[in-house]
């Protein structure tokens, strides 16, 4: 919470505080506490998906898949914040901007490919496993 308010302050006093914001970039390398919090969070966020899959926690595999994807997303954010020390003021906001742009491209690439190709797949001629085995 305090970090957020600091960030807001930095944004509000962008011009005057620009130097201060960069001078405490010593802390943008992170403290041991930061790494420890990140490590514990990452370990928990890794352990739960493995537990879900190995012990078949959810009856419906689709529910399990959605849950572990959410865990993966949260863990990626944790890594970005605690290990890569990403915040809205590093490099004057350009790193976050590049990240948002990349994320959009990644989502378009992934969702677009899966969507288009699944339609293409369901429009293909069906093939039995026997026919498949005799494929060249």
């Amino acid at each position: 919470m305090t970090a957020q308010s600091e960030r807001q302050n930095a944004v509000e006093h962008h011009d005057t505080d620009a130097h201060d914001a960069h001078d405490d970039s010593g802390s943008h390398h992170g403290s041991f506490k930061d790494y420890l919090i990140g490590f514990v969070l990452a370990a928990v966020l890794t352990a739960i998906p493995f537990w879900i899959v190995i012990y078949d926690v959810f009856r419906n595999p689709m529910v399990g898949a959605v849950v572990i994807l959410i865990f993966a997303f949260v863990q990626i954010v944790v890594h970005m914040v605690y290990f890569l020390h990403l915040n809205s003021k590093s490099e004057g906001g350009w790193t976050v901007l590049a990240l948002i742009f990349t994320s959009i491209l990644v989502v378009i690439t992934l969702a677009g490919s899966l969507w288009v190709m699944s339609h293409l797949d369901s429009n293909m001629m069906p093939m039995s496993p026997d026919q498949m085995r005799s494929m060249p």
Binding site: T46, P49, P61, G64, A65, I68, L69, F71, A72, I76
Partner: peptide, 15 residues
């Protein structure tokens, strides 16, 4: 690697 173990290994085994 988070993406790999989630998308490839865990979801592969799950689905």
């Amino acid at each position: 690697w988070i993406g790999v173990f989630t998308f490839v290994y865990l979801m592969g085994v799950l689905l």
